[in-house]
Design a protein around this nucleic acid. Structure first.
Length: 852
RNA sequence: GCGGAAGUGGUGAAAUGGCAAACACACUAGCCUUAGGAGCUAGCGCCGAAAGGCUUGCGGGUUCAAGUCCCGCCUUCCGCACCA
């Protein structure tokens, strides 16, 4: 330790040294085969989009995962800790436009840069299982899955109104539209366009996706709630309203069919309601502006068409202003009437802007007496308001309308009068079914997943359009359908692949004649829906992965990522897992047993973003303070599930702490090394005091890894330990703690630090003569006997107020504690001349005297 | 509007219903000197000279005891938002 350079903690020399050593040892972070005999642990962090730069959110996410992975390695688990790249997507095309760099080159260069950053941070990934979704050895399996799903009827094509982002020049899934705007371009309004689109039939799994949430106890309630709301199950009734006179022909409107078809005639309107019990209170029928009947009426009635167009324009304006939900209710009477099948009543048919075409049937019965929206509308247009539910328990005690509650009985409802709402619903559904004008119906908000994208940088959809055979699937042995490498990216709309003749023109696999390829590519959420299975068998060229390997590793034991993926990625992933299970590839129903969503990294109270100019670069932090300090700060500054305010002074503080550890351990390294192989005696005096603190710290840190994950308090506990050892420096220097105790103290300290500051821990482990890689060293075990204090201080309260502290032996019985409390001087002074009415002793905790 | 989370020193925060503010940052005073983004010592919720009193967004309640549990309200953030 005489070397002057080594007198200071210098992460800039320690860290690159270990980085090199680790890179040279491919087995260090490698998952072992199932035959290892160890229990498995699959810890996964969400894979990043390779933008070219890690941001602090990544650093935090990966620091959490890496700490956990390292801890599990030290606990003797066979750990799978992989990393990959969500490498398809629009930014690569934008970059191509801007810099004239091909998307592939741009993406791969970014990946290389970010991988360097990750390695510099010392993140322990098994790079042998790296997955890059934009490479054919990965995306061919997207195509393979597409074909399997096509065979099972889980893929279909339909022409439909789709969300179109003019900025992306492509289609968006419903999940990617936020407040009528594109999820990537918050200033860009999403338009509706009619296109032939490929869909995944995720709705086939709706109910299972919903019910499965109850079993995902290791997932945050918040995420489960968000998914439940997204799936949006609601139980109700569909009811057919006929027309007063059969002006419109005899065929039936298909619910959900929003393509105008003027050759089709309609004789009924089907509405969906959750409150069929209020149907005697229906005083109008309201149609969405896009409803097929409206389209047809408008086709022959130019005045109506003009008004409906006005409604639609109004909605568009509201979307632009970002207040779709607050738009004033507005409607147009059509002049036609519908018949309520329950009572034959004649109801005017309106077109209303508050009725949504893509939910239910696009038509509602309006019950202003018992629905706030209908009430507001009826008030505005002077439509009759009828009470049909009377609040429970109060005859004649009618509350104000609208009365929304279902806690009531029917009135003004013919034969149903007197029934409760629930009774009436059941009865009315039975009647509708038996008379054939309706049925019980469960409606979901979740829609099928539109996956077609009119982009270049994505997985080509493996379908061929033949003039003779129609749509033909690309045979498996012709996969992958490769993306053409050279392509000119332009801002023109439509699929770029359609402008590449070598790609577009092919032969039909069935007849061998000339045919055209599908030119759309897949939504990138396809890539991230199953990537974590590929990690278990990343080099497989015969299948997406080997089932036995997936079965060994799945489900993921701990998945860690941002809550912003609560719906999109995490619902699609669950869907994909169920599909693969039904294809017989895996046996698990859900991808991940536990999910952890970490908080955001903020700076000056706001989320870090380029536009706010408050971005802190991880590279800067690492250059100034080292990777260990940067990572440890990310864990120390707040519990992982909470938002974290980045304060550079805090990183400097951690760096100083690591410096103290470094000095402490290097100062006594020779002593510790000497004690490594010697037997320790029963500790006493200072040794006992420090070892006691050590074992308390081990217990605390271990417990947090097992449950609570409050790594901030783990780090604080380690700091306390270091402070206490350091405070005894003079005595240590005088040799008061013998070598074996010193070994236990310092080696355990270094081991505790290993998940949080892996570079420093590795360096010090070496320094004190630790054997082998610290990652394989056993996690220290707390000895409860040693951790226990001999004596403890018990607070004494009088009438709930703290008065004094008394020392008693740990584990003292209530009598002893009570006696000690009553003997205390301050207590006696306060109780003198008064009555001690009651004494509450909580052993080991407190004494409270109730005094009068 | 609905659902969820959170409100504790100057700051980040800590506290199985049992001593509020651990651990850090910042700050103040002092020491040290190889002058460093270093190290060490002490102080640091508020009022008060002290004794002592007060203190966890606000108001109630339960309890021997409440930051923690219950009720009502306020504020902030997040999600959903005309879903019939």
């Amino acid at each position: 330790m005489a070397d002057e350079k080594e007198l200071r903690y210098d992460p800039a020399t320690i860290e690159p040294k270990w980085q090199q050593k680790w890179a040279a040892d491919p087995t260090l972070y490698a998952a072992e085969p199932a035959t290892s005999g160890k229990p498995k642990y699959y810890v996964l962090e969400m894979l990043p989009y390779p933008s070219g730069q890690l941001h602090m959110g990544h650093v935090r996410n990966y620091s959490i995962g890496d700490a956990l992975a390292r801890h599990m390695w030290m606990r003797g688990y066979n750990v799978l800790h992989p990393m990959g790249w969500d490498a398809f997507g629009l930014p690569a095309e934008n970059a191509a436009l801007k810099n004239n760099t091909p998307p592939r080159e741009w993406t791969l260069a970014n990946i290389a840069a970010m991988k360097r950053q990750m390695q510099r941070l010392g993140l322990g990934y098994d790079w042998a299982t790296e997955v890059t979704t934009c490479l054919p050895d990965y995306y061919r399996w997207n195509q393979w899955f597409f074909l399997r799903m096509y065979e099972k009827g889980l893929v279909y094509r339909k022409k439909s109104k789709v969300n179109w982002c003019p900025e992306c020049a492509t289609v968006l899934a419903n999940e990617q539209v936020i407040d009528g705007r594109c999820w990537r371009h918050e200033d860009t309004l999403v338009e509706q366009r009619d296109l032939e689109q490929w869909f995944f039939r995720i709705t086939q799994y709706t109910q299972e996706l919903l019910e499965g949430l109850d079993k995902l106890e290791g997932w945050p309630e918040k995420v489960r709630t968000m998914q439940r709301n997204w799936i949006g199950r609601s139980e109700g009734t569909e009811v057919d309203f006929t027309f007063e006179n059969d002006l419109l022909g005899t065929s039936v409107a298909k619910p959900g069919n929003i393509v105008p078809d003027t050759t089709q005639t309609i004789s009924k309107i089907r509405v969906f309601t959750t409150r069929v019990d209020t149907i005697y209170g229906a005083t109008s029928v309201q149609l969405a502006p896009e409803h097929p009947l409206v389209v047809q009426l408008a086709a022959v009635d130019s005045a109506l068409r003009k008004q409906v167009d006005g409604l639609l324009d109004e909605q568009k304006l509201a979307r632009e202003a970002g207040n779709v939900g607050e738009i004033e209710k507005h409607g147009i009477p059509t002049g036609h009437f519908a018949i309520n099948p329950y009572n034959g009543e004649r109801l005017p048919i309106w077109v209303a802007n508050y009725v949504l075409m893509d939910y239910g049937t696009g038509a509602i019965m309006s019950v202003p007496g018992h629905d706030e929206r209908d009430y507001e509308f009826a008030k505005k247009y002077g439509i009759h308001i009828q009470r049909v539910i009377s609040p429970a328990g109060g005859e004649g005690e009618d509350t104000d309308l609208p009365f929304i509650s279902e806690d009531g009985v029917l009135v003004n409802s013919g034969e149903y009068n007197g029934m409760t709402c629930a009774e009436a619903q059941t009865k009315m559904q039975q009647v509708a079914a038996s008379k054939g004008f309706g049925e019980a119906k469960v409606t979901y908000r979740l829609k099928d997943w539109g996956v077609s994208r009119q982009r270049y940088w994505g997985t080509p959809i493996p379908m061929i359009n033949c003039p003779d055979d129609g749509l033909v699937a690309v045979p498996d042995d012709q996969l992958p359908v490769l993306l053409p490498p050279q392509i000119e990216i332009t801002q023109q709309g439509g699929s770029p692949l359609g402008r590449v003749p070598e790609f577009l023109n092919t032969t039909c696999p069935k007849c061998g004649g000339p045919a055209k390829r599908e030119t759309d590519t897949m939504d990138t959420f396809v890539d991230s829906s199953w990537y974590f299975y590929r990690y278990t068998d990343a080099k497989n060229t015969n299948a997406p992965f080997d089932s036995a390997k997936a079965q060994y590793w799945f489900p993921i034991d701990q998945y860690i990522g941002g809550v912003e993926h609560a719906i999109l990625h995490l619902i699609y992933s669950r869907f994909w897992t169920k599909v693969m299970r039904d294809l017989g590839m895996i046996v698990n129903d859900e991808p991940a047993r536990r999910l952890f969503t970490q908080g955001m990294v903020i700076k000056d109270g706001a989320k870090m973003s380029k536009s706010k100019g408050n971005v802190v670069s991880p590279d800067d932090m690492v250059a100034r303070y080292g990777a260990d300090a940067t990572r440890m700060y990310a864990l120390f500054a707040a519990p992982p599930d909470r938002d974290l305010e980045w304060q550079e002074d805090g990183v400097a503080g951690i760096s100083r702490f690591l410096g103290r550890v470094w000095r402490l351990v290097t100062k006594y390294d020779a002593l510790a090394r000497e004690g490594r192989s010697r037997h320790s005696q029963v500790p006493s005096g200072l040794s006992l005091k420090l070892l006691r603190k050590l074992h308390q710290t081990i217990a605390k840190v271990t417990l947090d890894f097992e449950g609570r994950w409050h790594f901030n308090t783990c780090v604080a506990a380690i700091m306390e330990l270091v402070n206490e050892i350091q405070a005894a420096d003079a005595q240590l220097a005088a040799g008061e703690v013998p070598a074996p105790a010193m070994w236990e103290l310092l080696s355990s300290l270094v081991l505790l630090l290993a998940p949080f500051a892996p570079f420093l821990a590795a360096e010090l482990w070496d320094d004190i003569g630790g054997e082998g890689a610290i990652l394989r060293a056993p996690w220290p075990k707390s000895d409860p006997g040693l951790a226990k204090e001999d004596e403890q201080e018990i607070p004494v309260q009088i009438n709930g107020k703290l008065v004094s502290l008394v020392r008693v032996p740990t584990g003292a019985d209530p009598k002893t504690i009570e006696a000690a409390a009553l003997a205390d001087e301050k207590v006696r002074a306060r109780t003198a001349g008064k009555n001690v009415v009651k004494v509450i002793v909580v052993p080991g905790r407190t004494v409270n005297l109730v005094v009068k």
